[in-house]
Amino acid sequence: MSNLLSVENLTMKFGGLTAIDDLSFDAKNNQITSIIGPNGAGKTTVFNCLTGFYKPTNGQMFLHKEDSKISLRKYTDFKIAYVAKVARTFQNIRLFPAMSVLENLLVAQHNELMVASGYSLYGLLNLKSYRDKEQLAVDKAKYWLDIIGLTHRADDNAGDLPYGDQRKLEIVRAMCIEPRLLCLDEPAAGLNPKESAELNKLLKFIKTEKQTGILLIEHDMSVVMGISDHVVVLNYGKKIFEGTANQTKNSKEVIEAYLGVDE
């Protein structure tokens, strides 16, 4: 299995506080890599560095593409999604609540549609080439909605969906940009066991059917242990363990980090 992402000596300091301390790990293609750790361990900070919201103090992050590799440090802001094709979801759901479910998925295909609409010119002239491209975008949205079973609600406002469906919608919205790496920040937070199981199914589907590596931050161990191929454990910004789900479960360091040391 080839490497997709390699993080090398990543360090992020906020003033005197070191949120991430010399972190290195790899994530592979078609695998789910989980980052776990107690609250405040720096997991979301890693995501914010990867997805261009923060500029790391030190270290490198590379996304491997066939034989070449691109440095994520070079891209900031929206270019991470646009050029490097790294998509993410958020700990607190960030949909466009007053827009319909379908519109949410179309905004994710903004850049292709922008070109197709000739930067609005062809669109204003209502050319057939644009209408065809728009139909393709709608078909793509329908494909993903069929998978999460929300096609019948495509025209409803995203904010009116139940919580669990909003989570799933945010994930497929990120998938609509056809990412090479999908970063999920606590996708199972607030889900009931049935919804968690559905989420596992969706993530497994993305992993096997799409050429997408998944990076996952999660507290829900049923999700982490159920689907992770590789687990990275952080505590106070440092990597304390790395291995398979089973190895992690039995690791002394991990148990100590979560439960404290026996006196």
Binding site: T51, F78, I80, F90
Partner: peptide, 14 residues
């Protein structure tokens, strides 16, 4: 409209 709803989400979608 997406920008009005959530700018950060917009950036994350490119």
């Amino acid at each position: 409209e997406a920008l009005r709803e959530d700018e950060i989400a917009c950036k994350s979608l490119g």
